[in-house]
């Protein structure tokens, strides 16, 4: 979706302001949101792509004005409400009104194992890659209202295949629970002048990881 999350190239957002000796978390509630999100992710009630969509699918001003863990909190609430894991009024009253067992409960003694295992997204597919290293491509001008990992700033732009990273789960379909639909994911090099024009952009380029269906020959 062309939402507040698609930030590449946007102006007016101010300086970077890195914080010296920054702590991992800035408040207790951030820790709790982080842990609740990971633990709920482990229930298997949704996938990582649906999780990303839940965070970004809101008014762009709200997305940008919320702090990072406020965005996570919002996303977690959305995902739970969609599945009836959280119902109207429960957060306000603190009283359970409705519940059901989740698919999987991550026990404390399995945390290390679960983190170590991770969630690999590469898949073996029988098709051969449509593009080869060195091929010139154009990023398709796709504007789905649903989840996509094709950033707006490359759409319609021309780049060169720099590497074939193997086949990966396709987030655009996976986020909608329409299947993993794995396809080749390429590293594509775009010159800064192609992306941003000729002013002050000499000597830099951007590499973007792009699924095959985001690309067309150029």
């Amino acid at each position: 979706m062309n939402g507040g999350q698609d930030l590449g190239g946007k102006h007016g957002l101010g300086p970077i302001n890195p914080e010296q000796n920054e702590p991992v978390f800035h408040a207790e509630w951030e820790k709790r949101v982080f842990a609740c999100t990971l633990a709920m992710g482990a229930t298997g009630e949704w996938n990582i792509d649906a999780g990303r969509f839940a965070r970004e699918n809101r008014h762009p001003a709200d997305y940008i004005n919320a702090s990072y863990y406020q965005v996570w909190l919002y996303g977690l609430e959305v995902l739970m409400r969609e599945r009836g894991l959280l119902v109207e009024g429960e957060l306000e009253t603190g009283k359970v009104q409705k519940t059901r067992p989740v698919k999987n409960l991550l026990r404390a003694d399995k945390v290390d194992e679960a983190l170590k295992a991770g969630g690999a997204c590469d898949r073996k597919i029988s098709d051969s890659a449509q593009f080869a290293v060195g091929d010139k491509i154009r990023a398709r001008n796709l504007n789905p209202k649903t989840h996509t990992r094709l950033p707006g700033y490359v759409r319609g732009k021309t780049g060169v295949i720099a590497a074939i990273n193997g086949a990966f789960v396709f987030p655009d379909s996976n986020a909608q629970f329409l299947g993993e639909n794995p396809q080749y994911c390429y590293s594509v090099r775009f010159e800064a002048t192609e992306l941003w024009g000729n002013d002050n952009n000499s000597g830099s380029c951007v590499y973007v990881d792009m699924w095959e269906s985001y690309l067309e020959p150029a």
């Binding site: 991992v24 820790k31 842990a35 959280l86 306000e92 359970v96 519940t99 989740v102 404390a108």
Partner: peptide, 28 residues
Amino acid sequence: RVKALESLLVEKNYVDPDTLDQLIDIYE
């Protein structure tokens, strides 16, 4: 809101409270 949410998750048995503490400890 976070306090209320966490209590509900534990009460509904969606999460193990020790799991939450462990996740925080690992990444902190």
